[in-house]
Structures are given as structure tokens and as C-alpha cells.
Design a protein around this nucleic acid. Sequence first.
DNA 1: GCTATCTGAACGAACGTTCGTTTCGCAAGG
DNA 2: CCTTGCGAAACGAACGTTCGTTCAGATAGC
Lengths: 219, 219
Amino acid sequence: MSVPLPPSRLRARKAVLPTSAVPDGTRRRILEAALQLFASRGFHGASIRDLATALELRPSALYAHFSSKEHVLAELVLMGHEAHHEGLRAALLGAGSEPIEQLRALVRAHTLLHANHPQLAVVVNEEIHSLPPELAAPALALREQSAALLHAVIERGRAQGVFSVPHAGVTAAAISTLGLRLPYWYEPTPALDVDMLADLHVELSLRMLGVQGPPAPAS
Amino acid sequence: MSVPLPPSRLRARKAVLPTSAVPDGTRRRILEAALQLFASRGFHGASIRDLATALELRPSALYAHFSSKEHVLAELVLMGHEAHHEGLRAALLGAGSEPIEQLRALVRAHTLLHANHPQLAVVVNEEIHSLPPELAAPALALREQSAALLHAVIERGRAQGVFSVPHAGVTAAAISTLGLRLPYWYEPTPALDVDMLADLHVELSLRMLGVQGPPAPAS
DNA sequence: GCTATCTGAACGAACGTTCGTTTCGCAAGG
DNA sequence: CCTTGCGAAACGAACGTTCGTTCAGATAGC
């Protein structure tokens, strides 16, 4: 009951899976509870018994749905990368052929995904290192593909002369990073909702790429 | 011997403490080995026995120097925050009174610290969440002071009209983030050494702040 | 009566930590 | 020069607990 609060990385918020590919049922409940726990205490800091307690189950019951604790993490990590990659791909498809529009779409999607699914963003980016290489590999492959999307847009924009950057790789890293650290400080408020945040990240990204935007409001 | 390689977050590089405040000896060796281990496997993923093995000691020997595993981490986390804060403070003192120069100094120092001490950066930013609140508190206080330094410079620049940002808080977060994610992708090479990287981060930061820099080289 | 799900008990291993003993460098005393 | 005593450091063995996981059996829905 009155156990001293364990340290927590993310304010407790209900974890929501970004996909409907996992049908309702115990398996989905396990994934959502594990997402919450792994995000707040880390993979090694959250035990199977913690997970079972959160689900009001006995530890052994989990093994009817997953073959090991690592496989639960692996599924979360893969799912997160899939949602991310699919989000970027869809955004790019919906944008026109102009690099500026494409970049706007990518940064918006990247920011919205990280802001709307902070726990998954944390687990995907931190706890993937707790997976053995063979379980992490599929996710890492997806990650490379996602990075390639951004690089391609930046390179095209540079070739067309609409982007002007001192160093494409460092700039791409900077833009990706905007989203990656979000879960650690951002929380939606009426004064700064996810949509405004995405617009701000687009603006910052374009500035880094040397695109002259509209003058900033006086505020 | 041929144990299957455990997953690792950071390429193995010798961990160097950024301070000479810790005298040579076993205590310092423990801190450096723990830094290496905690950075690569995480606090919960690295055991006292792992640490002892790396030091060619028996687990019990460590307790002559630290009262618990948590206290080893706490010392690393505090030391990292102190080095960071002191680095920023010194950089700011060495800069003039112009916001642009002050920002350049802060971003340079921030980037150099993270690039030169990647393990410490990772431990400080990720593993601090494994500490009980009372051990994390001193470091968190320092962190707030460091953030305040950046905020103050941005606010002064904005008041003087040399910076023009759509949202000061989000821009400050973006600039901090540039350094925080460095350990995960950057490694010094002749083609991109730490000094060039710091310059690039300064340039990106000034662009985000709406400062017109020199035109980017054609490369 | 088959299948899917969960329980209860238990397994061996690994965990952080404690404690009595041993080792060793070194200064003091004869 | 040898002995003695001392404090710091490391050892070796063990502690109680928690870890991930297994498995035979109970339960429930089709």
C-alpha cells in the first residue's frame, strides 16, 4: 500500500497504443500496461510481477500470451517503429512535390507522433537497447528507412536551392532530435497544444534549413 | 569468456570523469567503471557483480568506498550536473555582454561537454530517473539553474530585438536538445570534429533565434 | 470434451548487501 | 635489522530477497 514511490521517468498517463492492429483482449491489455511500466521505470526496473499486479493477474498468466518478458518489449518496440514509419510515409504521400511542403509534412507527423504517444516514444528510443540484437534488428531497419525519408527531402531541397545548410547530416539530426526529446518536457496545455507545437517545430526546422519564413509575431 | 554480447547503448569507449576533484585511487576507478557500465547497460541492467568484475575486485570490496549502488549513481549524476553547470557558467563569464556572443558561448560549451563526455551525458539524463527523489534533488536543482542561464540570454536578446522567435520556451528546449541527443549518434571524426560540431550547433541555434548568419558555404 | 485462460506452487539463478577474516604497507620500538 | 602493531583495503562465504520462468491442475465458454 504505502510503498515509497519508486522513481518515475514519465508522469503517469494512460498509455495508448497507436495501432488498432492489436485486437482488444488480454494481450492488448498486457501491451498497454507494459508500455506504461517500461516507460516509467525502464525495462530492467519493471518486473513481470509488477506487470502482473498492474493487470490484476498472476505472473504465470502472462506466459499464455508472450513467450518472455523480452518479447513483450520487442513487440512494443517494433510496433512503435512501424507506427512511426507509417506515419511519416503517409505524411509524405499527402504532401506535394515541393521540398518545403514535404519537410513540413514530415516534421508535423514526427512531432505529433512523439507528442501523442510519449510513452511509446520513450520505450522505442531508450529501451530498445535492452533487446538482444536479433529482436532489435527489425526495428532498427525501419528506423533507417525513416531517417532516409528525411535525408532525401533535405537533399532534394538542397539540390533545388530552396534549402541552404552548412551540414546536411547535423541538420537532419537536429530536426529528428526535436521530436525525440519531447516526452521529457512537453505536456499538452491549452496554451500550447500539440498542433501549435508541431507548427513551431516546422518553423524551427525551416529556419535551420535556411528558409526565410514569415516574420515572427511580436509576442 | 564467450558470453553472448549483452545489448549496449553506447559504443565502448573509455569513460573519463570531467573533474579532477576525485583523487586517483580505487574510488575513482569505481566511478569510471560504473560510468562506463551504467551508460552502456543502464543502472538496473548493470549489477554490482558486473562492476566488481570490470574492476577485478570482489563485490564486497566496493562497499568500503560506497555505501550502496545507488550512491555510486548519485555521485556520478551530481558530478555530471556540476561539471555541466560550471562549464556553462564559465563560458558565459568569458563572453561579452552581447546576447549573440553569450548564446554562442553557451551553445559551444553545451555541445563540447556532451560530445567529450558522452557516457556521463547519458547517465545524467537517463539514469537519474533510477534515483530516489532525495538523491536526485541536488542534481535537479543544478539543472534548473543551467536552464535558467539559457532562458535569460534568450530573453535579453529578444528584449533587445536581436533575437526573434515564435516561442521562447520551445526554442530554448530545441537548443538544449541539440546537445542532449549527441551521445546517441555522434562520434568524433577528422571530417567532423567536436569543434566543427560546436560551430554547427551555434549556427543552427542562431538560425532558430532568427539571427541572420553568413550564407552557408556551397558544399 | 476440447480449447483458451488463469492459478498456485515451485524452480534455479541472480540480485544487493553484510560480516568475519586475511592481506599488506608502513611507522614505531627494541 | 628485525619485530610488532595498526589501519585500510580486499577477500570469501553467506544472508535474505527478488528475478524470469515452468508446469500440473482448476475453471469456463463453445
